[in-house]
Design a protein around this nucleic acid. Structure first.
Lengths: 264, 264
DNA sequence: CTGACTTTGTGCACACGTTCACAAGCGGTA
DNA sequence: TACCGCTTGTGAACGTGTGCACAAAGTCAG
Protein backbone atom coordinates (compact mmCIF):
# COMPACT_ATOMS: atom_id res chain seq x y z
CA UNK A 1 0.00 0.00 0.00
CA UNK A 2 3.08 2.14 0.26
CA UNK A 3 2.12 5.65 -0.64
CA UNK A 4 -1.36 6.94 -0.06
CA UNK A 5 -0.09 10.07 1.47
CA UNK A 6 -2.28 12.15 -0.80
CA UNK A 7 -4.93 13.97 1.13
CA UNK A 8 -8.31 12.85 0.04
CA UNK A 9 -10.90 15.50 -0.42
CA UNK A 10 -12.43 16.17 2.94
CA UNK A 11 -15.05 13.53 2.89
CA UNK A 12 -14.93 13.71 6.63
CA UNK A 13 -17.59 12.11 8.76
CA UNK A 14 -19.78 10.88 5.99
CA UNK A 15 -20.66 13.94 3.98
CA UNK A 16 -24.28 14.23 5.08
CA UNK A 17 -26.03 14.29 1.82
CA UNK A 18 -23.28 15.59 -0.32
CA UNK A 19 -24.25 16.77 -3.74
CA UNK A 20 -25.21 13.66 -5.60
CA UNK A 21 -21.98 12.27 -6.84
CA UNK A 22 -23.65 10.66 -9.78
CA UNK A 23 -23.62 14.10 -11.30
CA UNK A 24 -26.53 15.65 -13.09
CA UNK A 25 -25.05 14.78 -16.43
CA UNK A 26 -26.32 11.53 -17.89
CA UNK A 27 -23.54 9.01 -17.89
CA UNK A 28 -22.78 9.71 -21.50
CA UNK A 29 -19.97 11.97 -20.45
CA UNK A 30 -17.66 9.11 -19.70
CA UNK A 31 -14.35 10.42 -20.84
CA UNK A 32 -12.71 11.78 -17.72
CA UNK A 33 -15.07 10.04 -15.35
CA UNK A 34 -14.06 6.53 -16.28
CA UNK A 35 -10.39 7.19 -15.68
CA UNK A 36 -10.81 9.31 -12.65
CA UNK A 37 -13.07 6.67 -11.25
CA UNK A 38 -10.27 4.13 -11.31
CA UNK A 39 -8.44 5.96 -8.57
CA UNK A 40 -11.35 5.47 -6.24
CA UNK A 41 -11.63 1.71 -6.51
CA UNK A 42 -10.73 0.08 -3.21
CA UNK A 43 -7.82 -2.31 -3.37
CA UNK A 44 -9.96 -5.16 -2.10
CA UNK A 45 -12.49 -4.55 -4.83
CA UNK A 46 -9.79 -4.69 -7.50
CA UNK A 47 -8.76 -8.14 -6.39
CA UNK A 48 -12.36 -9.28 -6.53
CA UNK A 49 -12.85 -7.82 -9.99
CA UNK A 50 -10.11 -10.13 -11.15
CA UNK A 51 -12.02 -13.03 -9.70
CA UNK A 52 -15.26 -11.95 -11.35
CA UNK A 53 -13.41 -11.73 -14.61
CA UNK A 54 -12.32 -15.33 -14.35
CA UNK A 55 -15.80 -16.49 -13.52
CA UNK A 56 -17.24 -14.48 -16.38
CA UNK A 57 -14.81 -16.03 -18.81
CA UNK A 58 -16.02 -19.42 -17.70
CA UNK A 59 -19.62 -18.38 -18.17
CA UNK A 60 -18.90 -17.02 -21.61
CA UNK A 61 -17.37 -20.31 -22.68
CA UNK A 62 -20.53 -21.98 -21.53
CA UNK A 63 -22.43 -19.72 -23.84
CA UNK A 64 -24.08 -17.53 -21.24
CA UNK A 65 -25.29 -14.22 -22.60
CA UNK A 66 -26.23 -12.49 -19.39
CA UNK A 67 -25.86 -13.03 -15.66
CA UNK A 68 -27.60 -11.56 -12.68
CA UNK A 69 -25.58 -10.22 -9.80
CA UNK A 70 -26.89 -13.06 -7.70
CA UNK A 71 -25.65 -15.76 -10.04
CA UNK A 72 -22.29 -14.16 -10.50
CA UNK A 73 -21.93 -13.56 -6.78
CA UNK A 74 -22.55 -17.19 -5.93
CA UNK A 75 -20.08 -18.33 -8.54
CA UNK A 76 -17.47 -15.94 -7.23
CA UNK A 77 -18.14 -16.78 -3.62
CA UNK A 78 -19.23 -13.36 -2.48
CA UNK A 79 -22.33 -11.55 -1.36
CA UNK A 80 -24.39 -10.11 -4.22
CA UNK A 81 -24.59 -6.64 -2.73
CA UNK A 82 -20.82 -6.51 -2.53
CA UNK A 83 -20.56 -7.65 -6.11
CA UNK A 84 -22.90 -4.95 -7.31
CA UNK A 85 -21.01 -2.32 -5.39
CA UNK A 86 -17.74 -3.56 -6.83
CA UNK A 87 -19.15 -3.36 -10.34
CA UNK A 88 -20.55 0.07 -9.66
CA UNK A 89 -17.01 1.32 -9.14
CA UNK A 90 -16.29 0.75 -12.79
CA UNK A 91 -19.57 2.09 -14.14
CA UNK A 92 -23.15 1.11 -14.81
CA UNK A 93 -23.17 -1.67 -17.30
CA UNK A 94 -26.09 -3.69 -16.05
CA UNK A 95 -29.71 -3.66 -17.14
CA UNK A 96 -32.25 -3.49 -14.36
CA UNK A 97 -34.60 -6.36 -14.39
CA UNK A 98 -32.23 -8.39 -16.52
CA UNK A 99 -28.68 -8.47 -15.34
CA UNK A 100 -25.29 -7.93 -16.90
CA UNK A 101 -24.24 -8.79 -20.40
CA UNK A 102 -21.31 -11.15 -19.97
CA UNK A 103 -19.33 -9.88 -22.93
CA UNK A 104 -19.71 -6.25 -21.93
CA UNK A 105 -18.71 -6.89 -18.36
CA UNK A 106 -15.63 -8.83 -19.42
CA UNK A 107 -14.58 -6.01 -21.67
CA UNK A 108 -15.07 -3.33 -19.04
CA UNK A 109 -13.28 -5.21 -16.28
CA UNK A 110 -10.38 -5.94 -18.60
CA UNK A 111 -10.20 -2.29 -19.47
CA UNK A 112 -10.18 -1.18 -15.86
CA UNK A 113 -7.59 -3.75 -14.90
CA UNK A 114 -5.44 -2.62 -17.79
CA UNK A 115 -5.53 -5.99 -19.47
CA UNK A 116 -6.15 -4.55 -22.90
CA UNK A 117 -2.45 -3.91 -22.98
CA UNK A 118 -0.07 -6.85 -22.62
CA UNK A 119 2.24 -6.72 -19.63
CA UNK A 120 5.50 -8.51 -20.12
CA UNK A 121 6.63 -10.40 -17.07
CA UNK A 122 10.16 -11.23 -16.00
CA UNK A 123 10.80 -14.03 -13.54
CA UNK A 124 13.99 -13.88 -11.50
CA UNK A 125 15.25 -17.00 -9.80
CA UNK A 126 14.71 -20.16 -11.80
CA UNK A 127 14.53 -22.67 -8.99
CA UNK A 128 11.55 -24.89 -8.33
CA UNK A 129 9.18 -22.01 -7.99
CA UNK A 130 10.66 -20.13 -10.92
CA UNK A 131 10.15 -23.17 -13.11
CA UNK A 132 6.57 -23.42 -11.98
CA UNK A 133 5.96 -19.77 -12.76
CA UNK A 134 7.65 -19.95 -16.15
CA UNK A 135 5.45 -22.85 -17.13
CA UNK A 136 2.31 -21.58 -15.51
CA UNK A 137 -0.33 -21.52 -18.19
CA UNK A 138 -2.49 -19.01 -16.42
CA UNK A 139 -0.26 -16.10 -17.28
CA UNK A 140 0.08 -15.87 -21.05
CA UNK A 141 -3.51 -16.91 -21.49
CA UNK A 142 -4.60 -13.89 -19.61
CA UNK A 143 -2.44 -11.12 -20.93
CA UNK A 144 0.76 -11.73 -19.04
CA UNK A 145 3.36 -13.19 -21.35
CA UNK A 146 6.43 -14.29 -19.45
CA UNK A 147 9.09 -12.83 -21.68
CA UNK A 148 12.26 -13.01 -19.65
CA UNK A 149 13.88 -15.32 -17.14
CA UNK A 150 16.94 -14.62 -15.02
CA UNK A 151 19.21 -16.51 -12.70
CA UNK A 152 22.71 -16.27 -11.38
CA UNK A 153 23.61 -19.92 -11.88
CA UNK A 154 25.83 -20.30 -14.94
CA UNK A 155 24.49 -23.79 -15.58
CA UNK A 156 21.06 -22.40 -16.26
CA UNK A 157 21.97 -19.57 -18.57
CA UNK A 158 20.78 -20.17 -22.10
CA UNK A 159 18.71 -23.18 -21.16
CA UNK A 160 15.13 -22.62 -22.26
CA UNK A 161 12.46 -23.02 -19.61
CA UNK A 162 8.90 -22.96 -20.77
CA UNK A 163 10.18 -21.86 -24.15
CA UNK A 164 12.18 -18.89 -22.91
CA UNK A 165 15.94 -19.00 -22.51
CA UNK A 166 17.34 -18.00 -19.13
CA UNK A 167 19.50 -14.89 -19.07
CA UNK A 168 22.14 -13.99 -16.53
CA UNK A 169 20.99 -11.62 -13.88
CA UNK A 170 23.68 -9.14 -14.83
CA UNK A 171 21.87 -8.55 -18.10
CA UNK A 172 18.64 -7.75 -16.37
CA UNK A 173 18.63 -4.04 -17.17
CA UNK A 174 19.30 -4.48 -20.86
CA UNK A 175 16.97 -7.41 -21.39
CA UNK A 176 14.12 -5.87 -19.44
CA UNK A 177 14.40 -2.68 -21.44
CA UNK A 178 14.52 -4.56 -24.75
CA UNK A 179 11.47 -6.65 -23.97
CA UNK A 180 9.59 -3.87 -22.28
CA UNK A 181 9.09 -5.77 -19.07
CA UNK A 182 6.69 -4.00 -16.75
CA UNK A 183 6.24 -6.61 -14.05
CA UNK A 184 9.00 -8.40 -12.21
CA UNK A 185 8.52 -11.59 -10.23
CA UNK A 186 11.05 -12.42 -7.54
CA UNK A 187 11.43 -16.12 -6.83
CA UNK A 188 14.95 -16.10 -5.45
CA UNK A 189 16.27 -17.18 -2.05
CA UNK A 190 15.62 -14.53 0.61
CA UNK A 191 19.16 -13.09 0.78
CA UNK A 192 19.14 -12.24 -2.91
CA UNK A 193 15.69 -10.70 -3.02
CA UNK A 194 16.49 -7.08 -2.15
CA UNK A 195 19.38 -6.98 -4.59
CA UNK A 196 17.25 -8.35 -7.38
CA UNK A 197 14.53 -5.93 -6.46
CA UNK A 198 16.91 -3.00 -6.76
CA UNK A 199 18.01 -4.17 -10.16
CA UNK A 200 14.46 -4.60 -11.37
CA UNK A 201 13.64 -1.10 -10.23
CA UNK A 202 16.74 0.24 -11.93
CA UNK A 203 15.61 -1.54 -15.08
CA UNK A 204 12.38 0.41 -15.02
CA UNK A 205 10.03 -2.27 -13.76
CA UNK A 206 7.00 -0.66 -12.18
CA UNK A 207 5.48 -3.53 -10.28
CA UNK A 208 6.94 -6.44 -8.40
CA UNK A 209 5.44 -9.67 -7.21
CA UNK A 210 7.62 -11.01 -4.43
CA UNK A 211 7.69 -14.64 -3.35
CA UNK A 212 10.73 -14.30 -1.13
CA UNK A 213 10.01 -14.03 2.58
CA UNK A 214 11.62 -10.63 2.87
CA UNK A 215 10.28 -7.12 3.31
CA UNK A 216 11.40 -5.26 0.21
CA UNK A 217 12.41 -1.62 0.26
CA UNK A 218 11.36 0.20 -2.88
CA UNK A 219 10.84 3.76 -4.08
CA UNK A 220 7.32 5.10 -3.72
CA UNK A 221 6.51 4.78 -7.39
CA UNK A 222 6.98 1.03 -7.44
CA UNK A 223 4.15 -1.22 -6.40
CA UNK A 224 4.92 -4.42 -4.55
CA UNK A 225 2.70 -7.34 -3.78
CA UNK A 226 3.99 -10.28 -1.87
CA UNK A 227 3.02 -13.88 -1.57
CA UNK A 228 4.46 -15.57 1.46
CA UNK A 229 3.72 -19.26 1.64
CA UNK A 230 5.00 -19.65 5.18
CA UNK A 231 2.76 -16.84 6.38
CA UNK A 232 -0.24 -18.44 4.72
CA UNK A 233 0.42 -21.69 6.50
CA UNK A 234 0.95 -19.97 9.81
CA UNK A 235 -2.34 -18.18 9.52
CA UNK A 236 -3.99 -21.53 8.91
CA UNK A 237 -2.13 -22.93 11.86
CA UNK A 238 -3.54 -20.17 13.99
CA UNK A 239 -7.04 -21.17 13.01
CA UNK A 240 -6.37 -24.81 13.81
CA UNK A 241 -5.06 -23.82 17.23
CA UNK A 242 -7.93 -21.47 17.86
CA UNK A 243 -10.36 -24.23 17.07
CA UNK A 244 -8.60 -26.73 19.26
CA UNK A 245 -9.33 -24.59 22.29
CA UNK A 246 -12.94 -23.57 22.04
CA UNK A 247 -15.26 -26.30 23.33
CA UNK A 248 -16.22 -26.70 19.70
CA UNK A 249 -19.74 -25.55 18.89
CA UNK A 250 -20.98 -29.11 18.88
CA UNK A 251 -21.98 -30.21 15.43
CA UNK A 252 -24.04 -27.59 13.71
CA UNK A 253 -21.56 -26.82 10.96
CA UNK A 254 -21.65 -29.35 8.18
CA UNK A 255 -23.86 -27.26 6.00
CA UNK A 256 -25.85 -28.40 3.07
CA UNK A 257 -23.19 -29.32 0.61
CA UNK A 258 -24.22 -32.50 -1.06
CA UNK A 259 -22.62 -33.00 -4.40
CA UNK A 260 -20.06 -35.68 -3.99
CA UNK A 261 -18.24 -34.53 -7.07
CA UNK A 262 -14.83 -36.05 -7.17
CA UNK A 263 -11.77 -35.51 -9.25
CA UNK A 264 -12.18 -37.18 -12.59
CA UNK B 1 -13.40 -15.77 5.52
CA UNK B 2 -15.99 -18.39 5.02
CA UNK B 3 -17.59 -19.06 8.36
CA UNK B 4 -17.70 -16.43 11.01
CA UNK B 5 -21.30 -17.11 11.58
CA UNK B 6 -20.74 -17.77 15.26
CA UNK B 7 -22.19 -15.10 17.45
CA UNK B 8 -19.42 -13.33 19.22
CA UNK B 9 -19.95 -12.61 22.86
CA UNK B 10 -21.06 -9.05 23.09
CA UNK B 11 -17.64 -7.57 23.35
CA UNK B 12 -19.11 -4.56 21.70
CA UNK B 13 -17.32 -1.30 22.24
CA UNK B 14 -14.06 -2.66 23.51
CA UNK B 15 -14.28 -4.63 26.70
CA UNK B 16 -13.65 -1.82 29.20
CA UNK B 17 -10.46 -2.91 30.85
CA UNK B 18 -9.82 -6.43 29.73
CA UNK B 19 -8.24 -8.39 32.51
CA UNK B 20 -4.49 -8.18 32.27
CA UNK B 21 -3.19 -11.44 31.06
CA UNK B 22 -0.47 -11.85 33.63
CA UNK B 23 -2.98 -11.27 36.38
CA UNK B 24 -3.92 -14.48 38.11
CA UNK B 25 -7.41 -13.16 38.66
CA UNK B 26 -9.45 -13.53 35.54
CA UNK B 27 -12.24 -11.19 36.46
CA UNK B 28 -14.30 -12.31 33.55
CA UNK B 29 -15.71 -15.63 34.58
CA UNK B 30 -14.21 -17.48 31.61
CA UNK B 31 -11.05 -19.47 31.72
CA UNK B 32 -7.54 -18.56 30.70
CA UNK B 33 -7.83 -15.20 29.04
CA UNK B 34 -4.94 -16.00 26.74
CA UNK B 35 -7.01 -18.48 24.78
CA UNK B 36 -10.10 -16.40 24.75
CA UNK B 37 -8.02 -13.53 23.53
CA UNK B 38 -7.00 -15.49 20.48
CA UNK B 39 -10.51 -15.27 19.13
CA UNK B 40 -10.31 -11.52 19.16
CA UNK B 41 -7.17 -11.13 17.08
CA UNK B 42 -8.00 -9.57 13.73
CA UNK B 43 -7.13 -11.68 10.74
CA UNK B 44 -4.87 -9.00 9.38
CA UNK B 45 -2.97 -8.87 12.64
CA UNK B 46 -2.43 -12.62 12.58
CA UNK B 47 -0.77 -12.40 9.19
CA UNK B 48 1.49 -9.65 10.46
CA UNK B 49 2.40 -11.62 13.56
CA UNK B 50 3.77 -14.25 11.24
CA UNK B 51 5.93 -11.62 9.62
CA UNK B 52 7.15 -10.29 12.94
CA UNK B 53 8.05 -13.81 13.89
CA UNK B 54 10.26 -14.18 10.85
CA UNK B 55 11.98 -10.89 11.50
CA UNK B 56 12.49 -11.80 15.14
CA UNK B 57 14.09 -15.08 14.17
CA UNK B 58 16.52 -13.16 12.05
CA UNK B 59 17.30 -10.80 14.89
CA UNK B 60 17.83 -13.67 17.27
CA UNK B 61 20.35 -15.25 14.94
CA UNK B 62 22.18 -11.97 14.91
CA UNK B 63 22.36 -12.19 18.66
CA UNK B 64 19.92 -9.42 19.50
CA UNK B 65 18.55 -9.66 23.02
CA UNK B 66 15.87 -7.03 22.86
CA UNK B 67 14.15 -4.88 20.28
CA UNK B 68 12.08 -1.75 20.51
CA UNK B 69 8.78 -1.55 18.72
CA UNK B 70 10.31 1.03 16.42
CA UNK B 71 13.17 -1.19 15.31
CA UNK B 72 10.96 -4.19 14.80
CA UNK B 73 8.38 -2.13 12.95
CA UNK B 74 10.91 -0.80 10.49
CA UNK B 75 12.27 -4.27 9.86
CA UNK B 76 8.80 -5.62 9.29
CA UNK B 77 7.75 -2.73 7.12
CA UNK B 78 4.92 -1.45 9.28
CA UNK B 79 4.08 1.47 11.48
CA UNK B 80 5.29 1.09 15.07
CA UNK B 81 1.91 1.92 16.59
CA UNK B 82 0.34 -0.84 14.57
CA UNK B 83 3.01 -3.24 15.66
CA UNK B 84 2.47 -2.45 19.31
CA UNK B 85 -1.25 -2.87 18.91
CA UNK B 86 -0.75 -6.19 17.18
CA UNK B 87 1.49 -7.39 19.99
CA UNK B 88 -0.98 -6.18 22.56
CA UNK B 89 -3.49 -8.66 21.18
CA UNK B 90 -1.36 -11.50 22.47
CA UNK B 91 -0.46 -9.95 25.80
CA UNK B 92 1.94 -7.55 27.42
CA UNK B 93 5.40 -8.91 27.03
CA UNK B 94 7.34 -5.68 26.63
CA UNK B 95 9.22 -3.63 29.18
CA UNK B 96 8.55 0.07 29.08
CA UNK B 97 11.65 2.08 28.52
CA UNK B 98 13.44 -0.95 27.12
CA UNK B 99 11.56 -2.88 24.53
CA UNK B 100 10.73 -6.53 23.94
CA UNK B 101 12.86 -9.50 24.73
CA UNK B 102 13.35 -11.26 21.44
CA UNK B 103 13.25 -14.78 22.82
CA UNK B 104 10.09 -14.15 24.80
CA UNK B 105 8.31 -12.58 21.89
CA UNK B 106 9.22 -15.43 19.58
CA UNK B 107 7.89 -17.92 22.08
CA UNK B 108 4.63 -16.09 22.60
CA UNK B 109 3.94 -15.53 18.93
CA UNK B 110 4.67 -19.17 18.19
CA UNK B 111 2.29 -20.17 20.92
CA UNK B 112 -0.50 -17.97 19.61
CA UNK B 113 0.01 -19.12 16.05
CA UNK B 114 -0.10 -22.71 17.22
CA UNK B 115 3.40 -23.44 16.02
CA UNK B 116 4.36 -25.31 19.16
CA UNK B 117 2.56 -28.23 17.64
CA UNK B 118 3.73 -29.57 14.28
CA UNK B 119 1.20 -29.45 11.49
CA UNK B 120 1.60 -32.08 8.86
CA UNK B 121 1.00 -30.82 5.36
CA UNK B 122 -0.22 -32.74 2.35
CA UNK B 123 0.36 -31.42 -1.15
CA UNK B 124 -2.01 -32.56 -3.87
CA UNK B 125 -1.02 -32.16 -7.48
CA UNK B 126 2.65 -32.77 -8.14
CA UNK B 127 3.14 -30.61 -11.19
CA UNK B 128 5.57 -27.75 -11.39
CA UNK B 129 4.06 -25.95 -8.45
CA UNK B 130 3.63 -29.12 -6.42
CA UNK B 131 7.31 -29.89 -6.91
CA UNK B 132 8.21 -26.43 -5.78
CA UNK B 133 6.10 -26.76 -2.68
CA UNK B 134 7.40 -30.22 -1.83
CA UNK B 135 10.94 -28.93 -1.99
CA UNK B 136 10.26 -25.60 -0.39
CA UNK B 137 12.60 -25.32 2.54
CA UNK B 138 10.54 -22.75 4.33
CA UNK B 139 7.97 -25.26 5.49
CA UNK B 140 9.70 -27.95 7.53
CA UNK B 141 12.06 -25.41 9.00
CA UNK B 142 9.16 -23.62 10.52
CA UNK B 143 6.97 -26.33 11.87
CA UNK B 144 5.25 -27.51 8.74
CA UNK B 145 6.62 -30.86 7.67
CA UNK B 146 5.31 -31.87 4.27
CA UNK B 147 4.40 -35.45 5.02
CA UNK B 148 2.31 -36.55 2.10
CA UNK B 149 2.14 -35.97 -1.65
CA UNK B 150 -0.66 -36.99 -4.00
CA UNK B 151 -1.29 -37.07 -7.69
CA UNK B 152 -3.49 -38.91 -10.14
CA UNK B 153 -0.78 -39.62 -12.69
CA UNK B 154 0.34 -43.23 -12.43
CA UNK B 155 3.82 -42.35 -13.61
CA UNK B 156 4.41 -40.27 -10.52
CA UNK B 157 3.14 -42.71 -7.92
CA UNK B 158 5.93 -44.02 -5.74
CA UNK B 159 8.48 -41.60 -7.08
CA UNK B 160 9.96 -39.62 -4.22
CA UNK B 161 9.82 -35.85 -4.49
CA UNK B 162 11.70 -33.89 -1.90
CA UNK B 163 12.19 -37.12 -0.03
CA UNK B 164 8.54 -38.11 0.13
CA UNK B 165 7.04 -40.71 -2.18
CA UNK B 166 3.96 -39.68 -4.14
CA UNK B 167 0.75 -41.54 -3.32
CA UNK B 168 -2.25 -41.98 -5.54
CA UNK B 169 -5.03 -39.60 -4.87
CA UNK B 170 -7.40 -42.48 -4.20
CA UNK B 171 -5.44 -43.25 -1.05
CA UNK B 172 -5.80 -39.75 0.25
CA UNK B 173 -8.18 -40.56 3.07
CA UNK B 174 -6.13 -43.42 4.44
CA UNK B 175 -2.76 -41.74 4.11
CA UNK B 176 -3.91 -38.43 5.56
CA UNK B 177 -5.37 -40.21 8.54
CA UNK B 178 -2.22 -42.28 9.10
CA UNK B 179 0.06 -39.26 8.96
CA UNK B 180 -2.26 -36.97 10.83
CA UNK B 181 -2.35 -34.38 8.12
CA UNK B 182 -4.05 -31.21 9.27
CA UNK B 183 -3.36 -28.91 6.36
CA UNK B 184 -3.98 -29.65 2.72
CA UNK B 185 -2.43 -27.76 -0.17
CA UNK B 186 -4.16 -27.89 -3.51
CA UNK B 187 -1.88 -27.42 -6.51
CA UNK B 188 -3.91 -29.21 -9.13
CA UNK B 189 -5.37 -27.95 -12.39
CA UNK B 190 -8.58 -25.97 -11.82
CA UNK B 191 -11.07 -28.65 -12.85
CA UNK B 192 -9.73 -31.09 -10.27
CA UNK B 193 -9.59 -28.68 -7.38
CA UNK B 194 -13.09 -29.01 -5.97
CA UNK B 195 -12.95 -32.78 -6.10
CA UNK B 196 -9.62 -32.85 -4.33
CA UNK B 197 -10.94 -30.40 -1.81
CA UNK B 198 -13.90 -32.64 -1.04
CA UNK B 199 -11.59 -35.57 -0.51
CA UNK B 200 -9.33 -33.62 1.77
CA UNK B 201 -12.29 -32.56 3.84
CA UNK B 202 -13.53 -36.11 3.96
CA UNK B 203 -10.09 -37.13 5.16
CA UNK B 204 -10.43 -34.79 8.10
CA UNK B 205 -8.20 -31.97 6.95
CA UNK B 206 -9.16 -28.78 8.74
CA UNK B 207 -7.43 -26.15 6.68
CA UNK B 208 -6.76 -25.81 2.99
CA UNK B 209 -4.38 -23.63 1.06
CA UNK B 210 -5.64 -23.39 -2.49
CA UNK B 211 -3.48 -22.45 -5.44
CA UNK B 212 -6.04 -23.39 -8.08
CA UNK B 213 -7.96 -20.48 -9.57
CA UNK B 214 -11.29 -21.80 -8.40
CA UNK B 215 -13.71 -20.79 -5.67
CA UNK B 216 -13.89 -23.79 -3.38
CA UNK B 217 -17.04 -24.84 -1.61
CA UNK B 218 -16.36 -26.21 1.86
CA UNK B 219 -18.24 -26.89 5.08
CA UNK B 220 -18.16 -24.08 7.62
CA UNK B 221 -15.67 -25.78 9.87
CA UNK B 222 -12.96 -25.87 7.23
CA UNK B 223 -10.78 -22.83 6.74
CA UNK B 224 -9.61 -21.98 3.25
CA UNK B 225 -6.99 -19.52 2.14
CA UNK B 226 -6.25 -19.03 -1.49
CA UNK B 227 -3.29 -17.81 -3.45
CA UNK B 228 -4.16 -16.81 -6.96
CA UNK B 229 -1.17 -15.84 -9.04
CA UNK B 230 -3.22 -14.49 -11.91
CA UNK B 231 -5.19 -12.26 -9.58
CA UNK B 232 -2.00 -10.90 -8.08
CA UNK B 233 -0.69 -9.99 -11.50
CA UNK B 234 -3.97 -8.42 -12.50
CA UNK B 235 -3.97 -6.25 -9.43
CA UNK B 236 -0.50 -5.09 -10.35
CA UNK B 237 -1.67 -4.49 -13.88
CA UNK B 238 -4.42 -2.29 -12.52
CA UNK B 239 -1.84 -0.16 -10.75
CA UNK B 240 0.23 0.16 -13.89
CA UNK B 241 -2.82 1.27 -15.83
CA UNK B 242 -3.91 3.66 -13.14
CA UNK B 243 -0.50 5.25 -13.16
CA UNK B 244 -0.43 5.53 -16.92
CA UNK B 245 -3.41 7.88 -16.77
CA UNK B 246 -2.62 10.39 -14.07
CA UNK B 247 -0.32 13.17 -15.29
CA UNK B 248 2.36 11.44 -13.24
CA UNK B 249 3.54 13.45 -10.24
CA UNK B 250 6.75 14.36 -12.03
CA UNK B 251 9.73 13.14 -10.09
CA UNK B 252 9.29 13.69 -6.38
CA UNK B 253 9.11 10.00 -5.48
CA UNK B 254 12.50 8.40 -5.47
CA UNK B 255 12.81 8.53 -1.74
CA UNK B 256 15.95 8.23 0.27
CA UNK B 257 16.95 4.71 -0.42
CA UNK B 258 20.67 4.66 -0.91
CA UNK B 259 22.20 1.31 -0.25
CA UNK B 260 23.15 -0.11 -3.56
CA UNK B 261 23.15 -3.60 -2.16
CA UNK B 262 23.16 -6.08 -4.95
CA UNK B 263 22.73 -9.79 -5.18
CA UNK B 264 25.94 -11.46 -4.22
C1' DC C 1 15.86 8.44 46.58
C1' DT C 2 14.67 11.46 43.13
C1' DG C 3 14.08 13.11 38.74
C1' DA C 4 14.77 12.82 33.76
C1' DC C 5 14.34 10.00 29.93
C1' DT C 6 12.68 6.14 27.18
C1' DT C 7 9.32 3.05 25.38
C1' DT C 8 5.17 0.46 26.00
C1' DG C 9 0.16 -0.06 25.98
C1' DT C 10 -4.15 1.89 24.66
C1' DG C 11 -8.20 5.32 24.31
C1' DC C 12 -9.92 7.72 20.69
C1' DA C 13 -11.01 9.37 16.22
C1' DC C 14 -10.83 8.62 11.56
C1' DA C 15 -10.89 6.04 7.23
C1' DC C 16 -12.02 1.96 4.92
C1' DG C 17 -14.73 -1.80 3.65
C1' DT C 18 -19.02 -4.49 4.13
C1' DT C 19 -23.86 -5.09 4.45
C1' DC C 20 -28.58 -3.70 4.34
C1' DA C 21 -32.50 -2.05 2.31
C1' DC C 22 -34.94 0.29 -1.08
C1' DA C 23 -35.99 3.54 -4.88
C1' DA C 24 -35.13 3.77 -9.70
C1' DG C 25 -35.33 1.69 -14.02
C1' DC C 26 -36.18 -1.79 -17.47
C1' DG C 27 -38.55 -5.69 -19.90
C1' DG C 28 -42.53 -8.31 -20.40
C1' DT C 29 -47.53 -8.64 -20.59
C1' DA C 30 -52.26 -7.49 -21.21
C1' DT D 1 -50.28 2.39 -23.08
C1' DA D 2 -50.27 1.10 -18.37
C1' DC D 3 -49.09 -2.09 -15.05
C1' DC D 4 -46.19 -5.60 -12.71
C1' DG D 5 -42.33 -8.03 -11.32
C1' DC D 6 -37.47 -8.37 -11.37
C1' DT D 7 -32.74 -6.64 -10.83
C1' DT D 8 -29.64 -2.94 -10.63
C1' DG D 9 -27.36 0.88 -8.35
C1' DT D 10 -26.50 3.29 -4.18
C1' DG D 11 -27.38 6.03 0.29
C1' DA D 12 -26.65 5.07 4.76
C1' DA D 13 -25.64 2.25 8.86
C1' DC D 14 -22.40 -0.63 10.70
C1' DG D 15 -18.20 -2.97 11.89
C1' DT D 16 -13.29 -3.41 11.39
C1' DG D 17 -8.78 -1.82 11.06
C1' DT D 18 -5.34 2.02 11.25
C1' DG D 19 -2.81 5.86 13.14
C1' DC D 20 -2.16 9.45 16.59
C1' DA D 21 -0.96 10.98 20.82
C1' DC D 22 -0.31 10.48 25.55
C1' DA D 23 -0.44 8.52 30.30
C1' DA D 24 1.62 4.73 32.62
C1' DA D 25 5.57 2.31 33.79
C1' DG D 26 9.89 1.10 33.67
C1' DT D 27 15.34 2.22 33.48
C1' DC D 28 19.31 4.81 34.53
C1' DA D 29 22.23 8.57 36.32
C1' DG D 30 23.47 11.24 40.04
Amino acid sequence: MAAQRGQRNGVGPAAPNAAEVTAPIPRVAEVPAARERARAIPEAAVARLAVYLRVLSGLQEQGAGTVSSEELAVAAGVNSAKLRKDLSYIGSYGTRGVGYEVAVLIEEIERILGLTRKHSVAVVGIGNLGHALANYGGFPGRGFPVSALFDIDADLIGVPVGGIPVDHIDDITRVCAEREVSIGVIATPPPAAQGVCDRLVAAGVQCILNFAPVVLQVPDHVEVRKVDLAVELQVLSFHVARRADGPAPASASLNGRVDGMVVS
